[in-house]
């Protein structure tokens, strides 16, 4: 009888876990990050729903970029950084010792604040990740590059000049090229670290439209200083301050009626 109860309890828990896994792509549990003695991210528990856009906002130095970088182990390259807690991608803790970091970064792509195309052709920029993964078939590469550039809403602008130097593209186009490069290796999650902060309003609008499209295929996490941008494009918003997650809720709730006064003061510009 007791055994049965335990089994039922296990089945129930497993069931609950499966429901959770079905809904959420990533989750962090008691996540803490230090840079030397500085406690940059404090005990973050956050679940990221599949095919949604999650925006992270907060004042400078609040730990939002550190948190974002921890999601695909980019903090590993920073000396003296130390991490505690768990980050699950589906069922797997990405900080487990048996995890291949390169594979994690393939599954969880990243687009940075400043576009950083390689000094190569447009084609070679997008092909780079695929070549690193050993793909040589020219036909496959061409198909994949066309698909990625289309997904990044850049194809029409560059289809007749794929051999041109990527650095000759405009700022907005370069950023979309970097997005295409990230998409080429078929990630499951794409992280954006202030992707529009160096772009003009037209280029920004294109990237925002693109992000809305991309969420149909990918799960997206974006760090942004621009609150209107977070409001426009995200489904959920997390507000960080001094390394802590102050509030996490649906974006419309955060921007019309946040639960915490600190959140309200920040988004109405009363501090920060």
């Amino acid at each position: 009888m007791v055994k049965m109860a335990i089994n039922m309890d296990y089945a129930e828990r497993r069931n609950r876990d499966l429901t959770f896994l079905k809904r959420f792509k990533m989750s962090t549990t008691n996540l803490n990050i230090w840079y030397g003695a500085v406690h940059a991210v404090k005990n973050i528990n956050l679940s990221i729903e599949k095919n949604k856009v999650i925006a992270i906002i907060g004042p400078s130095g609040c730990g939002k970029s550190t948190f974002l970088r921890s999601l695909n182990r980019m903090n590993d390259v920073i000396l003296k950084s130390r991490i505690e807690g768990k980050i699950l991608l589906d069922e797997k803790n990405i900080y487990d010792t048996d995890v291949d970091v390169v594979e994690i970064r393939r599954k969880i792509g990243m687009v940075f604040q400043k576009s950083n195309p390689f000094p190569k052709s447009i084609f070679e920029n997008v092909a780079y990740g695929l070549r690193v993964n050993g793909i040589k078939d020219k036909n496959y590469l061409e198909q994949k590059i066309e698909r990625s550039l289309k997904d990044a809403a850049l194809w029409k602008e560059v289809e007749d000049r794929l051999d041109s130097l990527a650095l000759d593209l405009s700022g907005g186009q370069q950023q979309r090229l970097c997005i295409a490069r990230a998409l080429a290796v078929e990630p499951e999650v794409v992280l954006f670290d202030e992707p529009c902060s160096a772009l003009d309003p037209t280029a920004t609008a294109k990237i925002e439209e693109l992000i809305q499209e991309l969420k149909k295929k990918y799960t997206i996490v974006i760090v942004t200083h621009n609150m209107q941008q977070a409001a426009r494009i995200s489904d959920f918003t997390a507000f960080f301050m001094l390394g802590e997650l102050i509030e996490f809720d649906k974006t419309d709730k955060i921007f019309t009626a946040p639960s915490k006064k600190t959140t309200e003061d920040y988004i109405t510009g009363r501090f920060g």
């Binding site: 609150m227 209107q228 409001a231 921007f255 019309t256 009626a257 946040p258 309200e264 988004i267 109405t268």
Partner: peptide, 9 residues
């Protein structure tokens, strides 16, 4: 001003 939260309300 694109107000938010209590200002928007």
């Amino acid at each position: 001003r694109q107000p938010m939260a209590r200002d928007l309300r």
